[in-house]
Design a protein around this nucleic acid. Structure first.
Lengths: 188, 188
DNA sequence: TAATTCCAAGAACATCTGTTCTTAACAGAG
DNA sequence: CTCTGTTAAGAACAGATGTTCTTGGAATTA
């Protein structure tokens, strides 16, 4: 009887990520979103309701399917190695395109409390994951015993956000990898 | 004969900074820009030509009158103290509002090469200033002799950008100051 | 095949937004 | 005071943008 939908919601959300990454929220117009997703206007509004609500869903998808895969390394509490792996993965991710979550915070954070909440939640999660890794690293003797774990975790967290910005400007990742070494080296 | 202009260009550029900080570029509409600057529509377009060109001038003004006052400390090559002063000043600046330059990079950087150039120039300037301070600090014996100066400067530069993002989310500056201590401590 | 139900594509609509134009008032020179 | 040239304020305009609606068509079932 009914025709089945040809679009895949998850796929649409994935395709929209790059549109928002390239032009920001207000800069991404519906015409381009429709054109670059396997979707159509009517379906869009039936499914998502509005552009703003769509952004929230894209952001959620971005966290679940993009960031999660990288942060999960940290949350395995793998010590210093997990931190190094995380930074390498993160540099590869933000290279040339930045991070959608960070971009949304800087563009919309002042006005949109929901975006700020999502941002704070992500930061907290990073923070806790770093603490876990640093504690493990300390117990393994990978880092000096006089390292202030909480403060170092805060530092690493800020650092991650800096990479998200730098990734937009950086031509190659050499500098970012070098900076990572400078960051983790003194802990040993 | 002619009536003198009642507006002060520098003042207008200053007033516009907060509008762009709050709503981003595309989110800041002309109605609000006109309303919150001591200005009028006709004068705006005679003076600036377009909203985009206006943003470039606001950004330039922001660098000259806001960032410059803080970065100048670094460029005095004052060693480790200058770096600490810089971070304290910077945290105070971005607290609750972020950094206009960073916001523009994340919102417009992908599409706008001029923004990227401005961003890279600013990053390079920070980088060079940090190197100068670190070299001075090393010659003064303020930091360990085996610190890799170039890599550390890269690290500090990324860190600054992270603060710009964190400033939008952070309720208070305690965490940011704590992170700064964790950053500079290991160098000593 | 025929009927039904939902989809794809895009036209249409109302609003918003950047830009330009109109009008009246003001400051200063003659 | 009068004239002149500029400004302030905002109306007006054209195009863009988010949202809704129309139309034709495809897939599935009987």
């Amino acid at each position: 009887m009914p025709r089945k939908a040809l679009y895949d919601i998850e796929e649409v959300l994935s395709q929209a990520i790059s549109v928002f990454l390239e032009h920001g929220y207000h800069g991404a117009i519906m015409d381009e979103i429709i054109a670059r997703t396997d979707f159509n206007r009517r379906g869009f509004y039936l499914e998502f309701g509005s552009k703003q609500n769509f952004l929230y869903l894209v952001l959620e998808h971005y966290q679940t399917h993009v960031l999660n895969g990288i942060v999960a390394h940290l949350e395995s509490h793998g010590g210093l190695d997990a931190i190094e792996t995380f930074f390498n993965d993160y540099v590869a991710l933000v290279q040339g395109e930045g991070c959608l979550l960070i971009n949304c915070i800087t563009e919309l954070g002042f006005d949109d409390e929901k975006i700020r909440d999502i941002g704070r939640h992500y930061i907290d999660r990073l923070q806790i994951a770093f603490i876990g890794c640093l504690e493990k690293a300390q117990s393994l003797g990978q880092i000096r015993t006089n390292v202030n774990i909480e403060a170092t975790a805060l530092q690493l967290t800020s650092y991650v956000q800096g990479f998200a910005v730098n990734g937009i400007l950086a031509g190659n990742t050499d500098e970012l990898h070098l900076a990572t070494q400078a960051l983790l080296g003194p802990l040993k």
